[in-house]
Structure formats: structure tokens, C-alpha cells
């Protein structure tokens, strides 16, 4: 499952003492470089006011934004996003893999061609549509366009996975008289659990990172997401030394949910990567 921890073929290379030491040192130096931004921002957050700054930004509202609430908001949007992608994606993946209909390959490639659609290129229609659907200031208003942009990738991943499932499972079920809906729910979904979990975790991660849709659609400070808060809380801090330090403390805190997610979800994110993405 968690492949990083498992016995790894490359571990033989550790037997070479000198190479292993060189790599260890190299990795440590590089790790310090990768941590450099984090170290910098933590230092800045403590420059004036110390750890009290963290307590302060956690206990006050910043331009109406309450930091712990932004985590909740990000999470709700992320769950909705993941739900839409898993539901629509798995059904479509099944259809493109197991069902035969005219123009299937063409339709499949038409779906995939939207893989590279950039969010910024659809902000104008999304803004209009959100108004038309009455979805301003709602979690749904953010999760729907996010899901639309993730779906091409989901279909690619799930169809690839479905193609790799041994056909005999389905044939046996078919002989037993199972219809497609039963095969979908009782064979396809359980078998593709690792991929679904992997995809769901990626969806959650992407939602946590998304800035553009929340900033376009959510104007209420109560519904502000963590990624969006980076911008909206800035003007809550006057440019005085202490408040600047507090702003950096807020930035550090905004990274916390993502870090927690990594610690909890990393094994699921890596799981199934090979089975879908890197298929022959």
C-alpha cells in the first residue's frame, strides 16, 4: 500500500557506504533549501510579539474572516468537489470501458480534449453562470466548476483502470444475469476502490489549492476558503511591525490543514498512482 515505506528495489544501493553517505548529505542540504521558505515565514511571524501572534490570529476575525472557519469552508468545498468527480467520473469511466455504443472512442477523446482547460479561461462564463444559477456565496457554486475542470482527468484515470480489470469478473456476472447497474455497483466500484480513494484525495488537495473560483464566487467573509484568505485577510493587518508579524503567523496557520492532509492522506494519494496514471 504505502509504497514509500515498503521494501524498495533501490535499497540495495544502500550497501554502498560512500554513495549512501553522499546521497544522505545531499538530501539533507536540499531539504534545508526546500524548508527555507517555511523557516523564513516562521521567523518573520515571531519577530515581534512571539507565539502570542498565533493565538491572536486564531482568536480574532480578520476582515470578518475567522481562520478556523476557513479550514471548514475549504473542507466542505473539497468534499463536494470530490463527490461530484467520483460520482460522474466513475459512471463515465465505466461507460467508456465496459459499454459498447456508436462513437464511443470519439466521445472518449472529446471528453479528454478538455484536460488542459485553464480555470482562468472560463472565469467569465463561470461568473455569469453562477449568477444565473443563484450560486454566489455558496459552497456548491465553487465545487461545481472545480468538478467540471477535474472530470476529464477523472475519466482518463478511471477508464484506464476499468480497462485493466480482468474481463472475466464481468463475464461471470453477466452470465448470472447481472445488468450494467449491478455490475457497476457490485463489481466495478468495489474493485476500483484504490483508484477512487486516490482520485478523491487528489480532488481534496486541488480544492484546497484553488484560489480563483472561491475568489470569484465567494464574497462573504464567513464562507471564505483558506487559499482565498491569503488575499482577503491582508488588509486586516495595519503595516505596523507587530501586525505584519501577525500576518505571517496567519500565513503559517493557513498551511496547517494541507500539512495535516498530507500526513493523513499521503498514502492514499500515492496508492493507485501507478495503476492509473502510468499505464502502458
Amino acid at each position: 500500500m504505502a509504497r514509500v515505506q515498503e521494501a524498495n528495489p533501490l535499497e540495495i544501493l544502500r550497501r554502498r557506504r560512500i554513495d549512501a553517505t553522499v546521497m544522505q548529505v545531499l538530501l539533507l542540504v536540499l531539504a534545508l533549501w526546500w524548508l527555507f521558505p517555511l523557516i523564513t515565514v516562521i521567523r518573520q511571524s515571531l519577530q515581534v510579539g512571539g507565539f502570542g501572534n498565533y493565538a491572536h490570529v486564531l482568536s480574532t476575525t480578520l476582515n470578518g474572516v475567522f481562520l478556523p472557519r476557513t479550514f471548514l469552508n475549504s473542507f466542505v468545498v473539497a468534499l463536494l468537489h470530490a463527490f461530484f468527480v467520483l460520482a460522474a467520473g466513475s459512471m463515465a469511466g465505466y461507460a467508456f470501458s465496459r459499454l459498447r455504443f456508436r462513437g464511443r472512442e470519439l466521445a472518449y477523446y472529446l471528453v479528454l480534449v478538455f484536460l488542459a482547460v485553464p480555470a482562468t479561461a472560463v472565469i467569465v462564463p463561470v461568473y455569469f453562470l453562477t449568477g444565473k444559477l443563484g450560486l454566489f456565496n455558496s459552497y456548491l457554486g465553487v465545487a461545481l466548476p472545480e468538478a467540471a475542470l477535474t472530470l476529464p482527468f477523472a475519466v482518463l484515470l478511471l477508464r484506464n483502470y476499468a480497462d485493466g480489470i480482468d474481463g472475466s469478473f464481468f463475464e461471470a456476472a453477466s452470465i448470472d444475469g447481472a445488468g450494467h447497474f449491478r455490475m457497476f455497483t457490485s463489481i466495478f466500484l468495489p474493485l476500483s476502490r484504490p483508484t477512487l480513494i486516490n482520485l478523491g484525495t487528489l480532488c481534496i488537495m486541488w480544492s484546497f489549492q484553488d484560489f480563483i473560483f472561491p475568489s470569484l464566487i465567494i464574497k462573504s467573509p464567513q464562507l471564505t476558503t483558506a487559499a482565498q484568505a491569503v488575499q482577503t485577510i491582508r488588509s486586516a493587518f495595519s503595516p505596523t511591525p507587530q501586525q505584519t508579524a501577525q500576518f505571517f503567523a496567519a500565513l503559517v496557520l493557513l498551511a496547517v490543514p494541507a500539512v495535516v492532509l498530507i500526513v493523513i492522506g499521503l498514502r492514499w494519494m500515492t496508492m493507485g498512482l501507478t495503476s492509473g496514471g502510468a499505464k502502458e
Binding site: 470578518g64 449568477g131 444565473k132 444559477l133 443563484g134 450560486l135 454566489f136 456565496n137 464574497k219 462573504s220
Partner: peptide, 25 residues
């Protein structure tokens, strides 16, 4: 929904915004 004119749309969007903001404020 589709037949709604532009003016209506803006009214709707603004209404939603305003409701959310008023209740929150």
C-alpha cells in the same frame, strides 16, 4: 432560467449577494 433576461440575472445575483451579506452583517 434560460429565458431570463440579463437584468433579471443581475437582480438575482445581487439579491443572493445582498441576502447573504445582510444576514451575515
Amino acid at each position: 432560467m434560460r429565458t431570463m433576461g440579463r437584468g433579471r440575472l443581475v437582480a438575482l445575483a445581487a439579491g443572493v449577494l445582498a441576502t447573504a451579506l445582510t444576514t451575515s452583517a
